[in-house]
């Protein structure tokens, strides 16, 4: 579903702020894979997701999604194959527009946008049906401005917007990190349910090792712009947080000192 071949990216090349962000990323994601990504700050996790979604051109390497070479495709063109949920709940929705207008824009991802009316009656019924299982009461508030919703509600809506047109790949960039623990757990459970229900292929960046182990069928660890650990299947299911910490110490040769990654 997704193939990354030797992808490299250096930001601000040649300046004092030069930052090697990705150094030869190789990754093949099979259809139906749910991959969790962990790693310290600056390891390149978010950069990898942004690279897949086309936010910046890569220096070298190949990116294929759903069998198509998208390496040189601009962000908005390859968006038809990608669903995205960002860390910032404000980023995935248009606050000054209604819930149904946001959904209608997402409903037309990858389709030609014409001069037909933006939200149809049939759609409205569909949105009500899709929002109801979230149990947030959003189904009765279709004509409410999104800016009036809480962070958790906005993330739930963004999640629905990312999946309402089935994407080839769903990219979740620490999408629960800005939420309180209770809401985060709820949104995460919703995410898992949606992925299972629609058999989506997904990559989820997280700082929470327990979540990284609990969810998905494959786990990768990144460091300095490289994938340093890739585990799946039964081996992944048997992982413990202590295993990951050990793995990290072995590969860095130093004590694991990042508090954020230890948050459980």
């Amino acid at each position: 579903m997704l193939v990354l071949k030797d992808v490299c990216k250096t930001f601000n090349r040649g300046s004092a702020n030069e930052k090697v962000a990705l150094q030869g990323i190789d990754l093949t994601v099979k259809e139906g894979d749910f991959i969790t990504v962990i790693g310290g700050n600056g390891a390149g996790k978010s950069t990898m997701l942004n690279m897949i979604s086309g936010a910046f051109p890569v220096d070298s390497g190949l990116v294929k999604i759903g069998g198509e070479n998208v390496t040189n495709q601009p962000e908005h063109v390859r968006a038809k194959r990608i669903g995205r949920v960002f860390q910032d709940p404000m980023k995935g929705t248009a606050g000054d527009m209604w819930i149904e207008e946001n959904l209608a824009i997402a409903m037309r991802r990858g389709k030609r946008r014409s001069l037909r009316w933006g939200v149809t009656k049939d759609e409205r019924e569909l949105y009500k049906k899709l929002l109801a299982p979230f149990d947030l009461g959003l189904e009765d508030r279709l004509q409410t401005k999104v800016s009036l919703l809480s962070g958790g509600q906005r993330q739930a809506l963004t999640l629905l917007m990312a999946t309402v047109q089935k994407p080839d790949i769903l990219l979740l960039d620490e999408h629960t990190a800005a939420l309180d623990p209770k809401t985060a757990a709820k949104v995460l459970a919703m995410t898992d349910e949606l992925i299972k229900e629609h058999n989506l292929t997904a990559i989820m960046v997280t700082h929470n090792m327990k979540d990284a182990i609990k969810y998905g069928n494959r786990l990768i660890m990144m460091m300095n712009g490289k994938i340093i650990y890739d585990v799946s299947g039964e081996e992944k299911a048997a992982l413990e947080v202590s295993d990951l910490l050990k793995k990290f110490e072995v590969s860095t040769g130093e004590e694991f000192a990042n508090d954020r990654m230890l948050l459980v």
Binding site: S53, E75, H76, V77, A79, K80, I82, R84, F86, M90, K91, G92, T93, A94, G95, D96, M97, E101, N102, A104, I105, A106, R108, R109, G110, R113, G118, M161, A162
Partner: peptide, 18 residues
């Protein structure tokens, strides 16, 4: 709708293929 959304949140519009 997409033009209005562009004035509010460009990141969202790009993510939705606009």
């Amino acid at each position: 709708c997409l033009i209005r959304a562009t004035g509010i949140n460009e990141a969202m519009v790009k993510a939705q293929g606009g």
